[in-house]
């Protein structure tokens, strides 16, 4: 039976308006790579931030090697050997690899920083991990994968017992992923427990023994990866099917209520025609910054369009200011939903 290294029990954390975590339990054994999966916003990152001391949990207990601990700051986390490698790397691009590894705590001889010692120590850590990077290289000149490895080396230099990897492979190529996995296996042999967050199911199979699933801030379950089929796992992650998540509704759609034509605004908005019918929900999709909001801001009058023709119920209308309704004056006769 594997030895338990880290355990969280009944962790809850809420932010204004959202319960980010509700009664979540989680554990990592020595030398284990534990997969943590869930949809965006399921609470994975929040859980890891609680684990590493970025956030404090509202409720719940944390144990390291069966000793209850309070991780109330990142420094405390470091001290206890919990380290997290974020998706966005936290390196100083203009410093050397060794500088980055020992940033904030360079080895000293008396009051003087020993550069030679630092590079020697850095080299030792990198060698142990099987990473082949010159410690004098400026981080800016490294590839993303190499930078990630430097991050790992940095985390290890804090004597990490537990290492959290948040989507480590998001920006890596196949070959680099293989390299990363090699390093992870090296660490496993040293008894480091790792939490591996990823959206890529195939990867989990390659590297993880157990998988924990979170959904909407709730703990769904922990399983051995081998005993799970892909369908089961996806089911655990998604939970409901799309149908139950949205109320089913049979809409009766009427005539065109509103029509906007030739909406132009500089080179941001360029729409020929947009129509909505009574009782219809028109979805507008597109990537962030594609101009979705800008289009409707023109219609609403919040941005001034260079040209635009609006028709409401067959009559042309004009908007100058975002005023409620753009509709004729009426007394308090609400159509109350």
């Amino acid at each position: 039976m594997a030895e338990e290294l880290f355990r969280m029990e009944g962790i809850s954390k809420s932010f204004p308006g959202v319960k980010a975590l509700q009664n979540v339990s989680f554990s990592v054994n020595k030398g284990e790579v534990h997969g943590l999966v869930g949809e965006n916003g399921a609470g994975k990152s929040t859980l890891m931030k609680v684990m590493s001391g970025v956030y404090r949990a509202d409720e719940g207990k944390i144990f390291i090697e069966n000793q209850e601990v309070k991780i109330d700051s990142v420094a405390k986390g470091h001290q206890l050997g919990v380290n997290i490698i974020f998706q966005e790397l936290n390196l100083a691009p203009h410093l050397s690899v060794a500088d980055n590894i020992f940033i904030g705590r360079p080895p000293k001889k008396g009051p003087i920083i020993s550069d030679r010692q630092m590079h020697a120590d850095a080299k030792k850590i990198l060698d142990e991990l099987g990473i082949n990077i010159n410690t004098h290289t400026v981080v800016r000149n490294l590839s993303v994968a190499q930078q990630q490895m430097v991050e790992i080396a940095k985390a290890i230099s804090y004597n990490s017992k537990i290492l959290v990897l948040d989507e480590p492979t998001a920006a890596l190529s196949e070959k680099e992923i293989a390299q990363l996995f090699e390093i992870i296996r090296n660490l496993q042999k040293k008894g480091v427990g790792m939490v591996y967050i990823s959206h890529r199911m195939e990867e989990l199979g390659q590297i993880c023994e157990r998988v924990t699933v979170l959904r909407d801030g709730q703990y769904i379950g922990t399983r051995n990866y081998k005993d799970l089929t892909m369908d089961e796992l996806v089911n655990m992650i998604v939970g409901r099917t799309l149908e139950d998540k949205y109320p089913k509704y049979q809409r009766t759609i009427g005539d065109v209520v509103f029509k906007a034509e030739n909406i132009r605004r500089k080179n941001i908005v360029n729409v020929d025609k947009l129509e909505v019918r009574a009782g219809e929900i028109l979805g507008i999709a597109g990537l962030m910054g594609s101009g979705r909001s800008e289009i409707v801001r023109c219609i609403f009058g919040a941005d001034k369009a260079d040209s635009m023709e609006l028709t409401m119920n067959g009559k042309p209308i004009k908007v100058r200011n975002p005023r409620p309704g753009h509709c004729p004056w009426h007394w308090l006769r609400h159509r109350r939903p």
Binding site: K245, Y246, N267, L282
Partner: peptide, 14 residues
């Protein structure tokens, strides 16, 4: 889940 029709926007045009 919610819409009847969907317009997809790319670089300011539909």
């Amino acid at each position: 889940g919610m819409s009847d029709r969907i317009l997809v926007v790319h670089e300011g045009t539909i």
